[in-house]
Design a binder for these strands. Structure first.
Length: 812
RNA sequence: GCCGAAGUGGUGGAAUUGGUAGACACGCUAGCUUGAGGGGCUAGUGGAGGAAACUCUGUGUGGGUUCAAGUCCCGCCUUCGGCACCA
């Protein structure tokens, strides 16, 4: 007789909601724990089992921490601005608001039937004017701090989507969504000066309890490199060229220079003889797509300007070239080329027969660039009028050269970042409007008292053909008039990207209904930082970097109390289809949680997702495995509950056996420890071991059942509540104290010890716990098996005894 | 190319500071139960050999350290993720 999940689960879900069981306490004196999921975009296809994985994990932690006496903040909300609802609106004319509301209610239904313990009184939605009012407010704080500016930039315009994409949304020259071609077009855009926070964002990583690989990804994305700026004077010209290099030690080996085709001095440096070739080259470069230009293995191309620069150390006259392998957006857009010690320069020099000079010994620069920094010494690097660094190591030479450059005003120590400023505007309807007005005098922010700048109704969601936002077509919204009906300014018609709302939602959760402020300082101070943040690895860089950026700014403005928002981060892995590939509609391997819950119940699904394997690994779905968990719950139920639905008659007020007590306390200890460390799979297996044992017991101590009920509650809360009730309780189990475990009771009297001969297992023996070496070894030597190895004319040269583990005889 | 993560039975995966590899499940095999199906229960299950006791072998691969290596060190192979001309 199985348990009736279809009755039990809705019963307790209703109970939890009706009694507001999971409403967060307002008592700010309690120890707090803030456990957060990356809130979802409520898509039309609904929740799938992969989403649930992270939510189950955080729910278990939240329930566990409540039982450990913490005041737990565990909220859920909706990142509801975004392209799919807008695309749907373009196709069908349905307002994104309507689509969003429908999707949210479906998501919420699905989430609730999984038995999660969210405090729904804290639900937020980024598209709610009461929410985006404060998104706009934070933008104004950034603007006032000089971190938001407008600029005409070449943007990634995708005609198919009719949208401008961020660099991050373009993959290999195609849109990330849909894979449509993307072109570079100049447009006026809002940009956030995230580069100003590059160092801060890099340093902040050190103290975070994040997976190392995520920290590494962010570090690489920020891409700090240390080196020097070096000025090169140009022959017969008042101009000079400044380059950035990480290898000032190789300055003597700089035998030519390259500037990017977009470099501002291209015109000045091109001599009349070379004008035609240069113009041709630049024309050709313009026609190349981004994809072609960043193709690594392509042939390098370039053209000579006709001008020469002077190497500041060797005093050599070196030719200045133009080539598109130099990026205008990194460093100064110009480089000193050291073909002897840089692969790209070497390749280019070979192709155009430029001079290759060895300045670090150890390689053969006629065959390949020698880029090793650790070995070799500087050679061919001295000049009577400047300095000699011959014989120095690379790192000494770097410092010597920088000092020389600084003393002689030829350059300076310098740092560069790969990180670019953040393109922050989109030509879309379904996003936060900017609180910005354009007047004859320029840009002016909307007064904070006028927020929110509401998203107006619009007839047509399509952007205009020239790429302007659909908002630009609404005259009465765009034109801001004074009381006399004079136009005093025009509204900004771009909207913010989807990242905006998720940059600070975790702060809003601390005080979601506040109409006066974005958050109350007391609430923020109490709840922040987020103690545990679980979400997918796909947000490793963008969301997590952007949110950290805003948070750092807010911290500098004194608006938040912690420098970093997310203390501990953990990534749940993907759940693949049962064929081992990514779940997708086209493969037909999608598992719908609704079906699973219908057939096996939410508790089974929760338990299975935790049992599948380590939380952070990808693993294939297997319905058979799920059935195993369903069987386990039934076994548990049938062990504790009789056929008639009352508590099992085996459960009595008795003293449990020593063996049972040992397993019990081991389980209490292991489950608690494993939850703390997010090792849910091993916690579940320990529970299985315990229940397998109880199943074989003739009678079961009621005292232990009470504690067992508590430790299964985070995993399978519906069953736990039901049994808790059968035990005679009338309250919820959710706030019961987590059982204490007694380490002394986990210890057994006897242990099985391995007996090895020369490291090979030959026998096992049961010994008293903590037996001394002499007795243990003697007992082992009595074994017939062992004697056959020791009495054959061989002698024991060494004996290793690891108490309670093994004995190893080394025999020769 | 660079950076990061990972390779353990037929499958998902366990394995404190190096100390009985394969816990716990799935699957499979046999038996019991049932009118059948389903379900439940019992036993077995890394591979090879053997009737059995047992023996050999075994954590991607080749070395090394050690009484002892899935675990530590060095080299290589494969898979996945990220970056990709960043000077």
């Amino acid at each position: 007789m199985g348990y009736l999940h279809q009755t039990i689960e809705p019963k307790w879900q209703d109970y939890w909601i009706k009694n507001q069981v999971f409403k967060t306490s307002e008592d700010l004196k309690l120890p707090k724990y803030y456990v957060l999921d990356m809130f979802p975009y409520p898509s039309g296809s609904g929740l799938h089992v992969g989403h649930a994985l992270g939510y189950v994990a955080t729910d278990i932690v939240a329930r566990f921490k409540r039982m450990k006496g913490f005041n737990v903040l565990h909220p859920m909300g909706w990142d509801a601005f975004g392209l799919p609802a807008e695309q749907y609106a373009i196709k069908t004319g349905t307002h994104p608001k309507i689509t969003t509301a429908e999707n949210v209610s479906n998501f919420k239904r699905q989430i609730n039937q999984l038995g999660f313990s969210y405090d729904w009184s804290k639900e937020i939605n980024t598209t709610d004017p009461n929410y985006y009012k404060w998104t706009q407010w934070i933008f104004l704080q950034l603007y006032n701090k000089g971190l938001a500016y407008e600029e005409e930039v070449a943007v990634n315009w995708c005609p198919e989507l009719r949208a401008v994409l961020a660099n991050e949304e373009v993959v290999n020259g195609k849109s990330e969504i849909g894979g449509h071609p993307v072109y570079r077009t100049p447009m006026k855009q809002w940009i956030l000066r995230i580069t100003e926070y590059a160092e801060s964002l890099l340093n902040g990583l050190d103290d975070l309890d994040w997976p190392e690989n995520i920290k590494e990804l962010q570090k690489n994305w920020i891409g700090k490199s240390e080196g020097a700026e070096v000025h090169f004077s140009v022959l017969n010209s008042p101009q000079s060229l400044t380059v950035f290099t990480t290898r000032p030690d190789t300055l003597f080996g700089a035998t030519y220079m390259v500037i990017a085709p977009e470099h501002p001095l291209v015109q000045d440096l091109t001599t009349d003889d070379n004008k035609k070739d240069v113009l041709d080259y630049i024309e050709k470069t313009k026609l190349k797509s981004d994809f072609d230009r960043t193709e690594v293995n392509k042939d390098k191309t370039g053209v000579f300007t006709g001008s020469y620069a002077v190497n500041p150390l060797s005093k050599e006259h070196i030719p200045i070239w133009i080539a598109d392998y130099v990026l205008s957006t990194y460093g100064t857009g110009a480089i000193m080329a050291v073909p002897g010690h840089d692969e790209r320069d070497w390749e280019f020099a070979k192709k155009y027969q430029l001079k290759i000079l060895e300045v670090v010994s150890g390689g053969d620069v006629s065959k390949a660039a020698y880029i090793t920094k650790e070995a070799g010494e500087i050679v061919n690097s001295s000049h009577k009028d400047t300095l000699s660094i011959d014989g120095l190591t690379v790192s000494d030479a770097i410092n010597t050269v920088i000092s020389f450059l600084e003393k002689n005003r030829l350059g300076r120590r310098s740092v560069n970042y790969k990180l670019r400023d953040w393109l922050f505007s989109r030509q879309r309807y379904w996003g936060e409007p900017f609180p910005i007005m354009h007047t004859d005098q320029g840009v002016s922010p909307i007064d904070e008292s006028q927020l929110p700048v509401r998203l107006p109704e619009v007839d047509n969601y399509k952007p205009s053909d020239d790429g302007k936002s659909p908002l630009s077509t609404i005259k009465q919204w765009v034109e801001i008039k004074d009381v006399n009906d004079n136009i005093i300014g025009l509204r900004e018609t771009n909207t913010m990207p989807q990242w905006a709302g998720s940059c600070w939602y975790y702060l809003r959760f601390t005080d979601p209904q506040n109409l006066q402020e974005a958050w109350d300082k007391k609430a923020e101070n109490y709840w922040m930082p987020v103690d545990l943040y679980i979400g997918g690895q796909e947000h490793a860089v963008l969301h997590l970097l952007y949110a950290r950026f805003w948070h750092h700014v807010l911290f500098d403005l004194g608006l938040v109390s912690t420098k970093e928002p997310f203390q501990k981060l953990y990534n749940q892995g993907m759940i693949l289809g049962d064929d081992g590939s990514k779940m997708s509609k086209s493969r037909g391997n999608v598992i719908n949680p609704d079906d699973i819950i219908e057939e096996y119940g939410a508790d089974s699904m929760r338990l299975y997702e935790m049992f599948m394997g380590p939380l952070n690994k990808s693993k294939p779905w297997n319905t058979k495995g799920l059935q195993g968990c369903y069987r386990f719950i039934n076994k548990l139920w049938n062990t504790l509950v009789d056929e008639d639905g009352t508590l099992s008659s085996k459960i009595k007020e008795i003293q449990a056996s020593k063996e049972t007590l040992s397993i019990h306390h081991t389980t209490v200890e292991k489950v608690g420890h494993d939850i703390e460390n997010l090792h849910f799979n091993t916690a579940v297996s320990q529970l299985m071991i315990y229940v397998n044992h109880l199943q074989d017991c003739e009678e079961i101590s009621k005292e232990l059942v009470i504690d067992l009920c508590k430790i299964i509650a985070p995993f399978i809360p519906h069953v736990a509540e039901e049994i808790w009730q059968l035990l005679g309780n009338t309250n919820t189990i959710s706030y019961e104290k987590w059982p204490k475990f007694d380490a002394s009771l986990t210890v057994k009297d006897e242990v099985e010890v391995a007996i090895q001969v020369n490291g090979k297992l030959r026998a096992t023996i049961t010994l008293d716990i903590d037996l001394d070496q002499e007795n243990a070894v003697n007992a082992a030597l009595q074994l017939e098996k062992i004697q056959s190895y020791t009495n054959n004319g061989q002698s024991i040269v060494k004996t290793i005894y690891v108490p309670n583990r093994l004995i190893n005889f080394v025999v020769r």
